[in-house]
Design a protein around this nucleic acid. Structure first.
Length: 147
DNA sequence: GCCAACGTTGGC
DNA sequence: GCCAACGTTGGC
């Protein structure tokens, strides 16, 4: 069973464009226990929505987990990282304002837990995001997404 | 174990 | 720039 997640990044610090220039992105630096535990639940092949916070406030891209959690190399304390790769951009970004006004999406943790930087996305929400943005279901190196 | 103080995130 | 939400720290 493939699962869906969402990570946030402040685009002035690390943007989707930055991510797309890399083959593999080590998602490090998470320092919140709930976010860390969510990282530890990610499995290879899972889909990760990439959200721009602050100035932009929109989901902009889709990535995929390619390495499950390991010790965050930026600290010796007990924090975790995962590796992801960029898969594709959304055909059009989906703004937080759009998400808040969409009856099917306003229950996302993006809205209800606005400060959580790594969070699960339900399959229903994931399908709705793809539908709203006319984004084809992304092909993945681990095979197509099963719904 | 409680809670006040404080720091950070992120929307507005 | 402001501030609400919320997590962490540390005194008691």
């Amino acid at each position: 069973m493939k699962h869906y997640w969402l990570v946030k990044s402040e685009p002035s610090v690390y943007s989707w464009a930055d991510a797309q220039q890399e083959k593999i992105i080590a998602w490090t630096g998470v320092r919140n226990y709930l976010a860390r535990n969510t990282l530890r639940s990610m499995r290879n092949g899972d889909i990760v929505f990439f959200y721009h916070s602050m100035s932009e406030k929109a989901i902009v891209g889709i990535a995929q987990v390619v390495r499950e959690h390991y010790q965050d190399p930026t600290t010796t304390e007990d924090w975790s990282a995962v590796d992801i790769i960029p898969l594709c951009s959304l055909s059009s970004p989906l703004s937080l304002a759009d998400i808040k006004t969409d009856p099917q999406l306003c229950t996302m943790m993006l809205v209800t837990h606005s400060r959580l930087s790594v969070q699960p996305v339900s399959a229903t929400h994931a399908q709705r995001i793809l539908q709203r943005t006319s984004t084809p279901i992304p092909l993945s190196i681990h095979g197509p997404i099963h719904t």
